[in-house]
């Protein structure tokens, strides 16, 4: 159980792969490999809900990466602090306990790591989610920046802790 955990969210469909691919890219990066043994781990995390809370439990910094559609330019990377996100109003069920509902539940129970940072990469409004679809060009182009942003986040967090 590492103090820093990076979790890629998404599905195997088109641009919704972005979080998974970012994690794969991160794990191959020299910067991530250079981190001390047992300090940081990265994995793709398919289901949200309680599994996501479990995956974050015990960490001090959790970084979540997901695809988003907010109307920004495709490929835009945004960074949010999960502790200050508003509770979403998405519907939820046994099959779809969604991302914002999960974070809302974690906040209500004081069950989130001290620092939870969410990186979102904007996918096109007309993104296809066909099974065989590749990442769209703007999303694919953003992956190296996203990986660098995550590494930078870990470095800054570590530096803050060192002070």
């Amino acid at each position: 159980m590492t103090p820093v955990r990076v979790l890629g969210l998404g599905s195997p469909f088109g641009d919704d792969r972005a979080g998974w691919i970012a994690v794969e890219s991160l794990m191959r990066s020299d910067g991530f490999r250079a981190l001390p043994e047992g300090f940081a781990s990265a994995e793709i995390c398919d289901p949200v809900g309680n599994n996501l809370l479990d995956a974050m439990r015990g960490a001090r910094l959790a970084i979540l990466i997901d695809a988003a559609q907010s109307g920004a330019a495709p490929g835009t990377i945004s960074r949010l602090d999960a502790q200050t996100l508003e509770d979403g109003s998405e519907p939820w069920s046994s099959h779809g306990f969604g991302f914002s509902a999960t974070l809302a539940l974690g906040r209500a129970l004081n069950d989130l790591p001290q620092d939870v940072v969410v990186f979102l990469v904007e996918i096109p409004a007309d993104a296809g989610f066909e099974p065989a679809e590749n990442l769209s060009a703007p999303v694919a182009t953003a992956i190296p920046d996203l990986t660098a942003a995550v590494l930078n986040e870990i470095a800054q967090w570590t530096a803050r802790g060192a002070k």
Binding site: D87, W92, A101, A104, L105, R107, A108, L109, N110, D111
Partner: peptide
């Protein structure tokens, strides 16, 4: 209306 809302008043039960 939702579990996160209930969790604020009944945290032990939801936990």
């Amino acid at each position: 209306t939702s579990a996160p809302e209930m969790a604020r008043d009944y945290p032990d039960e939801v936990r």
